[in-house]
Amino acid sequence: MSTNCRRRLIRDFKRLSTDPPGGISGSPCPDNIMLWNAVIFGPADTPFEDGTFKLLLTFDESYPNKPPTVKFLSRMFHPNVYANGELCLDILQNRWSPTYDVAAILTSIQSLLHDPNPNSPANAEAAQLYRENMKEYVRRVRATVEESWLDPDEHEAMRQEDEAAAASSSDPSSS
């Protein structure tokens, strides 16, 4: 069945494959056009350089009148990315416009890597280091860059180890 949303997503995919903006790629899952996998390559001259950060975009039937849900699958260390991979980006929330497409969304996220907004932190530690200790911020980001090269299974194992370590060293608090 073809719906408005699906037709628009097909157009988005066409545009992304014929005229791809630099440093991003994305495509729908073969069996579900409402689910897209994307990769953002860390922009040059930023601590994220050379990273291959994977994302998952989930659309519902109200797209493009509503934004998709966007989540990093790769572990990120960035002031505006939550621990669960969700991100805090105005155009995906209250400044969404139906004129945005997948290419525009991915390009905006790419420039967010470049230009974090420490005033609306989703990761307080990353925001603090970004403001006060650039050297340590860069070191932590570089660690995620290296992790981003691992395949998903290795990555998941690493994440579980991290979570186990975090759980044993501090009280989990909801935020």
Partner: peptide, 9 residues
């Protein structure tokens, strides 16, 4: 060509 910015048609 000119397309509608919302549906891209």
């Amino acid at each position: 060509g000119d397309v509608c910015g919302i549906c891209r048609v």
